[in-house]
Design a protein around this nucleic acid. Structure first.
Lengths: 219, 219
DNA sequence: GATAAATGTGACCATGTAGTCATATTTATT
DNA sequence: AATAAATATGACTACATGGTCACATTTATC
């Protein structure tokens, strides 16, 4: 948690500092990211950062929580009940995710880099926690579908949940590998991750759904 | 490539050095892995390492090539034609992979860590190359199946290939997340990655195949 | 056994970082 | 205006690493 001093900061400055660090952590690994560099860019003293946060990890956690909170505002309105099947729901999550990306490029870049780049040794613990949360979330969804008789019941929920999680990761990763998106470039141009690529994104989502549907659906 | 000096080394010493570095790189990230530490363990001078290899990356590449070569000896005998369908072939790859693991614990641990832990910033380039090779391999397999009319033709080969690759990763990762295997512990006990866990491994493989089969198979 | 070639060595350099702290500066309170 | 409280500062510490190189030691050659 940030210290009092940071919370009491003027909105302007708080945003400047947050953005600068988001930018750094969005492009590099946790370990690679350098506080020394960012303060140089910001034109503030390194000591100030330690007036705001206990240490590097504290600062990082703040960025994670902030970003997750902002994204949640976009996705929490999406509920399974409003969609005819899981896949329409799944697709809708990406639609809303796209809006989040468009309106909060920095937070989006940060989260994108986090999910693709999780295993910095120093934050392995944090990674495992986040992973476990996300995977558990997917398992809950699978459970729901199985109970409703919509997903297969002959495969362990854990297997289905984990694979579903991997499906989400794969979509992002494939877009990157195939060159459709280039986060490194787009962040420099101050553009969102999926800038002008909504169709490509939704197409890949559709492809993966078409592929995965028969694996999960009963019959 | 290792220097002449390393190649001319006595088998014994060569193995000692290789093993020590495999052990280090099997437990840590590329960046985390410390040459200084390993030479201390080996009781040799740091300068010697630079008599054997050009630099850290050269040393690492040697370990990668070595390990891949050793593993290939186990898997190259497995050919698609010898199996009734892709999934039997896929499963057989794991069977032979298990033997590789059992007979070459260190190389196996190294490769296992490599695939789960690829994104050290300094080797991003190497990672992308390896990834691209592996993914292309899977795409070839998919193409073969599509041509034979065994895999669906309504999904881009790239999507299927990439997802198949992710399937392989998922199997390993899930075994680790669920605690069935614990590479960190087993390497310390000088045990292979899947020591005594052949049944669990093949069960998860079977689960994933059962799950994924309908996604890929034509009807 | 003497000379030459090949190896081994470890102190040392350059580099980079997270985090500290005494001090200076700014802001709030009386 | 004077005092007190809150912030900002940046030189400095402690640490760790990859890589170098002049020199010592071992091995091969004559």
């Amino acid at each position: 948690m940030p210290k009092e001093t940071f919370i009491k900061l003027k909105k302007e400055k708080k945003k400047q500092i947050t953005d600068a660090f988001l930018r750094e952590f969005a492009v590099k690994t946790y370990d690679e990211s350098s506080i020394s560099m960012v303060v140089k860019q910001l034109g503030i003293a390194k000591g100030s950062v330690y007036q705001y946060f206990n240490d590097k990890l504290d600062l990082f956690m703040y960025l994670v929580n902030e970003s997750v909170a902002v994204k949640s505002k976009y996705t929490e309105s999406v509920t399974r009940e409003d969609y005819p099947d899981f896949w329409a729901f799944f697709s809708a999550l990406y639609e809303h995710g796209f809006r989040f990306d468009d309106e909060n490029p920095l937070h989006s870049h940060f989260l994108h880099n986090l999910t693709q780049n999780l295993n910095s040794p120093s934050i392995k613990h944090l990674y495992n926690e986040l992973l476990s949360q996300v995977v558990t979330g997917f398992e809950k969804m699978v459970e729901y579908e199985v109970e409703k008789g919509l997903f297969r019941s002959d495969i362990p929920v854990k297997t289905q949940g984990f694979f579903l999680y991997k499906l989400g990761i794969s979509i992002q990763e494939q877009l990157e590998v195939s060159g459709v998106i280039n986060p490194r470039e787009s962040i420099e141009k101050k553009q969102p991750v999926y800038f002008g690529k909504k169709n490509d994104l939704m197409q890949v989502v559709a492809d993966y759904i078409k592929l995965a549907k028969p694996a999960f659906d009963k019959n």
